[in-house]
């Protein structure tokens, strides 16, 4: 799948933002006044920048409000509705802390749960697609949820939770890669089943249907990054989980170390998301198999 920068930014930054808001909503830390303004501002900012980035890949962003209507069937629509609900639910809690030094724990808790469900809905946009077997797997929501929670723990400086979550995230990422590698073959779709001609013999492409490229190939048969998969996986794992964990362990009370850990984690997660898209194979590529 084509790793569009807008979608990589959308999933990474909104995950970061909703993770932070979930921790703030749950009352893991209760900043007040200006500190609360900055903390909630960061959470809202990241979530909204992420959501805005997702609008950049739309053919008609001016019609984006229509995406709130089909929540009965569409995970993308559910994600839109839930993200709006989460941001609204946390608002009284945030405003209470910023202006009156008073938390509104009920709204905070509801908002925290909604933040988690929003990230789950984001992951299901991808995990629901049977056409992309690597995504159509329980490790997809697991990685998305753990990534968001890890970001929340890091951004609120919750050292112990962060250490636990970084470890779990590392395990989930490795599982997603290892199990994902065999997922396409396990589903059994081949050029033979795609054309139905497999019943008659061995099938291979003799001639493509067009001389140039097309939307299907550029969007769903992206192969550029696959060559660097191993290096990128190491980078994602090291920068996303191992190095932040080492930093937190070696300098537990240093704000500078925490800041660097957050930036490293962000870089690692961007690499992970790049791989998430670039490595994913779509069944339509079968029709172009030699």
């Amino acid at each position: 799948m084509h790793p569009a920068p807008s979608i990589i930014l959308f999933t990474t930054l909104s995950g970061l933002g909703f993770g932070l808001l979930a921790f703030l909503g749950a009352g893991v830390i209760l900043p007040t006044g200006l500190a609360a303004f900055l903390w909630f501002g960061l959470g809202y900012g990241l979530a909204l920048i992420g959501l805005a980035a997702s609008a950049f890949h739309l053919g008609h962003p001016e019609r984006a409000l229509r995406a709130f209507t089909q929540w009965r069937t569409s995970w993308l629509s559910r994600e839109a509705v839930l993200s709006a609900a989460a941001l609204l639910a946390i608002a009284p809690h945030a405003a209470g802390l910023v202006f009156w030094n008073t938390p509104v724990p009920v709204m905070g808790a509801i908002g925290a749960v909604l933040c988690g469900v929003t990230v789950f809905a984001t992951s299901m946009i991808y995990a629901q697609l049977k056409t992309v077997p690597r995504w159509n797997h329980w490790t997809t929501p697991l990685v998305f949820l753990l990534a968001a929670l890890t970001a929340g723990a890091l951004l609120t400086g919750s050292g112990y939770s962060a250490q636990m979550l970084l470890a779990w995230l590392a395990v989930a990422m490795v599982l997603h890669w290892i199990l994902g590698d065999g997922q396409f073959a396990r589903r059994g779709s081949t050029l033979g089943t795609a054309t139905g001609l497999g019943l008659m013999g061995r099938v291979r492409q003799l001639e493509p249907p067009h001389t140039g490229t097309n939307y299907l190939l550029t969007e769903m048969a992206y192969v550029v990054a696959r060559r660097h998969v191993r290096v990128l996986r190491v980078i994602a794992l090291a920068s996303g989980c191992v190095l932040p964990s080492v930093l937190l362990w070696s300098a537990p009370y240093s704000l500078l170390a925490l800041g660097i850990a957050v930036l490293l984690h962000l870089a690692g997660m961007l690499a992970q998301r790049w791989l998430f898209f670039a490595e994913a194979e779509h069944t339509v590529a079968l029709y172009y198999r030699g």
Partner: peptide, 27 residues
């Protein structure tokens, strides 16, 4: 008139039956 051109339906189709038009921005 209601299509926002998100492209998710093209991803959901196993057969490559849907193409997002580059100029019109709709599926």
């Amino acid at each position: 008139d209601a299509c926002i051109g998100c492209g998710l339906c093209a991803w959901a189709c196993p057969y490559g039956a849907r193409e997002l038009d580059a100029l019109a921005g709709v599926m």
